[in-house]
């Protein structure tokens, strides 16, 4: 490889990598943002993500249609969310504890049912090449953008608009901010929260399908490296705003792409360290946005972690 081109391609490669790596972050964080806006936290999304990856891959392989795979992952994710939501609606149940249980359950079930699908090859999701204007293969490769990423970007805008200008959006915010006010309005907070958790789970399922059907593009037990958990930190960083979630997902994606990109241009020193970039970033973000004396602005008032 031409070293000259090699170094100048780094920013572009990171951008391309960011787009590739960020999609699961984007879907999980949008789902989590929705759930948290309703006043509940679902830590089980890591399990939902892995199960979504497995179910999406399996269905895509069996039907030979990646989109049916995505649909299946979405339905499974919604089911996981629904279970979490219903259990949390019972009195004296802690959403964080249920979330951790759901995370382990999701991963366990995915590994159990996923065994037969480690070998077979499922069809990939389609991507659109935005690099047609360039002759350089690396540029073209970097600008291959998956359709799901574009859907995710549109979804972020739609969610932002929904929270602002629709009845459902306002109801969600009321429920997330004050259970008392919601009850006084005759709303049923538990139902709203359960629905929000189910939809959030569906988003996370789609994020999982992206992992197994596009990047890295195969099903194995190590497919998720904690994206589902990092997305929770990301939502806090994004202040529960879907548009900010999009930016934050790109940032985390970029950090995740750092290791592979540097490796591809031949920088191998401290290479494991770069792979740790997203985790370090998570830690950094949480420290930077925390304060012992200040209340967090923008946090939904009913959220158990910020109460």
């Amino acid at each position: 490889m031409d070293t000259e081109l090699g170094y100048s391609i780094i920013p572009l490669a990171i951008l391309g990598g960011a787009i590739r790596v960020s999609t699961p972050f984007l879907f999980v964080s949008l789902g989590e943002a929705l759930t948290e806006r309703s006043g509940r936290i679902n830590l089980g999304l890591e399990g939902t993500l892995v199960f979504g990856a497995m179910s999406g891959y399996a269905v895509a392989y069996l039907t030979n249609s990646p989109w049916l795979g995505v649909g299946a992952a979405m339905i499974c994710g919604a089911l996981f969310g629904l279970i979490h939501g219903v259990i949390c609606s019972l009195p004296r149940v802690n959403d964080i504890a249920v979330g951790i249980a759901m995370m382990i359950l999701g991963m366990g079930l995915a590994f159990y049912f996923g065994k037969p699908y480690v070998q077979p090859v499922a069809p990939d999701l389609p991507a659109i090449g935005f690099g047609w204007w360039s002759d350089i293969p690396q540029v073209r490769a970097a600008l291959e953008v998956n359709v799901l990423f574009l859907i995710g970007a549109v979804l972020a805008v739609v969610l932002w608009w929904m929270l602002r200008s629709t009845r459902i959006g306002l109801i969600l915010r009321v429920v997330g901010d004050s259970t008392d006010a919601a009850r006084a309005m005759g709303l049923r907070p538990a139902v709203v929260r359960t629905c929000a958790t189910a939809v959030g789970g569906a988003f996370a399922g789609v994020g999982g399908a992206y992992l197994s059907l596009y990047y890295p593009g195969s099903w194995n037990e190590g497919i998720s490296s904690g994206q589902g958990l990092m997305a929770v930190a990301l939502v806090i960083f994004a202040r529960w705003n879907p548009l900010a979630c999009f930016g934050a997902a790109l940032l985390f994606g970029g950090a995740g792409a750092l290791g592979p990109v540097l490796q591809s241009v031949g920088i191998s020193e401290g290479y494991y360290l770069f792979f740790a970039a997203p985790y370090v970033l998570t830690l950094g973000v949480l420290i930077a946005t925390s304060s012992p004396t200040r209340a967090m602005t923008g946090a939904p008032g009913e959220l158990s972690i910020t109460k």
Binding site: S165, L170, R173, V174, D177
Partner: peptide
């Protein structure tokens, strides 16, 4: 005695959402 307003919503949002007949899409 205790406020039943939603703290993070604006004044306008609080008024509109308290109505019984809020349309699905709000024309702000």
């Amino acid at each position: 005695q205790h406020f039943t307003l939603v703290p993070s919503l604006t004044v306008a949002e609080n008024l509109v959402i308290s109505r019984e007949d809020v349309p699905n899409v709000i024309d702000w």
